[in-house]
Design a protein around this nucleic acid. Structure first.
Length: 493
DNA sequence: TGAAATGTTGGGGCG
DNA sequence: ACGCCCCAACATTTC
């Protein structure tokens, strides 16, 4: 906890000005880079939006919306002194160092491949210019190279990874928290010139031009304060039921912390420590296990940087993926005619998130039943999710598609009707997102095409008029997917 | 963090 | 009383 925040003017040449370069660590608490910088003297907080270096994985629309609000909250917490720039991070930071008496630049590592390249280039350039750099690890429980085996090799299966992680963390040393600074001295906007910081955040144009973000506004409050409130509410009200209810689509049982974690508005370490202080329970354990999955996917992305674009296990070389723009479009819009899939996709579009169970089922329909490449689905999620995270997203899609580490076997194909009956027996989730199906009785709301004409009429459902007929026959497409996989295996053998 | 097919068991109706 | 069939419920195997 920072006890005291003050602002000051730029120190004269020769003094200890440190830049804190914020990226996916938009918080003041438990932020190692910030703490390191603050310990040495006055701090200049900087955020730089760098779209051009992100390649294929430039931030998506929902993420940009979140970032806009998150930067605004961070700027407020910094008494309006956050310097916001856009462009190439290396040249922007170098230029700041030329113009101001900067001794040191501090940042927390990001683990995406393009961020790693960026880190290297920035560190080299600053080093060549005689500027100190301080690179910390604050976005994971353990840096990915420390969560591997003793010999440094990565884990490819979750169970042993999780056992090892739990062992390392329980030793305590890994999570020992450094003493946070008692005082944060922030320099007043050095380059203010003609515009105020808030105007600069607006100038990043992160909010959508067409205002489709009403649902996001309704469902989310970005920012560090909200993150802490969300965590407290989860621990107070929901964690005890988490193990049993986390798969239930209709219940509000999950933590909803993923976007805060992605943008670093709360640190996983803080979550782990707070959970550890509570009496051990099944709910807490199940929750921390999910945090370990996040850790695992980052571990894999670090060791296999191509994971975001290529099959982790090249089992699918020459797989007959279908190029089917019309079906992809219906999947994206939530008009497949398969209720659980449509409910999930509409929740995604409207709120920027989707229940994890629904993510697995919608992903399975696209990659297995429709035989559309998992990358097409991953890209759509990337654009729509407020918690879009390269490691988690790529890992999840590969897991479902059956080409990832610890992957679901190829023959594990979700049946969206059975999943719906099992995890949303009363149809609460379906009816929330598919008002046109509200009149159907529980036994038919999961599969309206099985209802009799009379039942459909009573419910006011007209297939292919106010709700689509199913995009595909579930049984036949399951057989087709199995056959395609088996052909692949035969050719291989 | 599957689903579907196939196998097994045991109770009840019935001749 | 007994064998037979049916079938639900559960377990196992296969994809």
């Amino acid at each position: 906890m920072i006890l005291q925040m003050e602002t000051c003017t730029i120190p004269p040449n020769g003094q200890n000005l440190a830049i804190v370069w914020f990226r996916q660590d938009l918080r003041l608490h438990d932020n190692p880079a910030l703490h390191a910088a603050a310990a040495a003297g006055p701090v200049l907080p900087v955020y730089i939006l760098d779209d051009d270096n992100a390649g294929e994985w430039k931030m998506g629309g929902a993420s940009r919306w979140w970032l806009h609000h998150s930067l605004s909250r961070l700027n407020e917490a910094l008494h309006g002194q956050l310097l916001v720039l856009r462009g190439d991070c290396r040249s922007k930071l170098a230029r700041l160092c030329e113009r101001l008496p900067v001794r040191q630049v501090c940042w927390n590592r990001c683990y995406e491949p393009w961020h790693r390249r960026q880190d290297e280039r920035v560190a080299k350039e600053l080093g060549d210019a005689g500027i100190e750099t301080c690179i910390a690890d604050g976005s994971l429980l353990l840096p990915p190279w420390r969560s591997g085996r003793r010999d440094g090799s990565p884990y490819a299966v979750f169970k042993p990874f999780h056992d090892n992680l739990a062992r390392l963390l329980s030793s305590g040393e890994a999570l020992a928290s450094e003493a946070p600074p008692r005082r944060l001295l922030v320099v007043e906007q050095p380059l203010a010139g003609n515009s105020q910081p808030l105007e600069r955040i607006e100038a990043l144009a992160l909010k959508p031009r067409i205002p489709w973000d009403a649902g996001l506004e309704q469902h989310w409050t970005p920012g560090e304060t909200a993150a802490h409130e969300q965590l407290a509410a989860f621990f107070d009200q929901r964690v005890d039921d988490y193990r049993l209810d986390r798969d239930s689509l209709g219940a509000e049982a999950v933590s909803k912390l993923s976007p805060y974690l992605h943008f670093g508005e709360i640190s996983p370490r803080r979550i782990w420590l707070e959970a550890s202080e509570r009496p051990a329970s099944d709910g807490t354990k199940a929750f921390l296990r999910q945090l370990a999955w996040r850790e695992f996917s980052h571990h894999l992305l670090w060791h296999f940087p191509h994971m975001s674009d290529q099959d982790l296990r090249p089992t699918l070389a020459n797989f007959p993926w279908r190029d089917d723009a019309a079906s992809l479009r219906r999947w994206q819009q939530g008009t497949t005619g398969i209720p659980l899939v449509d409910a999930g996709m509409r929740e995604l579009w409207r709120t920027g998130t989707m229940h994890n169970r629904a993510r697995m089922v919608t992903a399975s329909l696209l990659s297995k039943n429709l035989l559309i490449h998992w990358l097409a689905g991953a890209r759509w999620f990337w654009d729509c999710l407020v918690d879009a995270d390269l490691a988690n997203n790529s890992f999840g899609w590969q897991w479902v598609a059956g080409c990832g580490a610890d992957a679901a076997p190829y023959f594990r194909i979700f049946n969206p009707v059975l999943q719906s009956r099992k995890f949303d027996p009363q149809g609460n989730y379906l009816r929330r997102w598919l008002p046109e199906l509200r009149g159907l009785p529980d036994r038919h709301v999961h599969a309206p095409w099985e209802a009799s004409p009379g039942e459909l009429r009573t419910a006011g459902v007209r297939l292919d008029e106010n709700y689509p007929a199913p995009i595909i026959d579930l049984r036949a497409s399951r057989e087709r997917a199995l056959a395609a996989w088996q052909a692949l295996r035969r050719n291989r053998a």
